[in-house]
Write a protein that binds this DNA or RNA. Structure first.
Lengths: 114, 114
DNA sequence: CAGACTAGTTTGCTTTACAAGTTAGCTGAG
DNA sequence: CTCAGCTAACTTGTAAAGCAAACTAGTCTG
């Protein structure tokens, strides 16, 4: 329980994370959802990840290639595009700004104990 | 331009920031929007902040007191409640988890240079 | 009085996460 | 052969949150 990631906090972040993940290697949706959990994003539902990948493809941040799988239906691999790399770098810059702002806010504010 | 904070990245974060801000002192909406800009959250629109405060009051994370202002209409000061402090602590925990996850992801992934 | 500033509210739009359900291929147990 | 269980992807509909824009109103200065 405790630290389940609030659905709202994820917004916007997830797309950035996918761009970073796909920077190194092409992956298909099912593998992405497994990879994310190794980074602490436990159980991001497939109802979240697949539609997001489709949207990103429409925005031309990703392109896709179908390849047969040894264990089941055809896989759809996603590859990052030049526009995707640019979006990734913008995400990193914005993320850095945001975390700095929040860190400052948390430092400056003496929190009441209870 | 460059680092204007993406609207999506803010989601969920803003409520946590307000809880932290209001942990130390009661503030009214107009002052909050000015205080936020000193923490790097430049120009969060009033169309964002006022509705959020009302929602948080409905959720009983905040309560409000009206006090006359020397410079204009009556101010509505917001005070954090016990439930608000609990929500604040949960936000801090979740925020910490999220930033750790993203940091790990960014480290592990060697980013292509362009 | 007019304009600028302070202060708060409301309406409607857009994006995004997600639950839930659907389709479909493969493998191994019985 | 059949069925369960896993792999793999897509679709529909809903809710939350940020925000633009418009509106109401009080105060202060020129």
């Amino acid at each position: 329980m405790a630290n389940d990631l609030n659905t709202q906090l994820l917004k916007g972040t997830l797309q950035g994370c996918l761009l970073i993940l796909l920077s190194r290697q092409k992956l298909y949706g099912y593998a992405i959802s497994e990879a994310l959990s190794t980074f602490g994003f436990a159980d991001i539902p497939k109802g979240t990840i697949y539609p997001l990948l489709l949207t990103m493809e429409k925005k031309q941040l990703l392109k896709s290639e179908r390849q047969p799988s040894p264990d089941g239906p055809t896989r759809k691999y996603y590859v990052i595009t030049a526009a995707g790399k640019q979006a990734r770098d913008e995400f990193i810059a914005q993320w850095s700004t945001l975390t700095n702002n929040v860190a400052t806010l948390m430092q400056k504010e003496a929190l009441d104990e209870n």
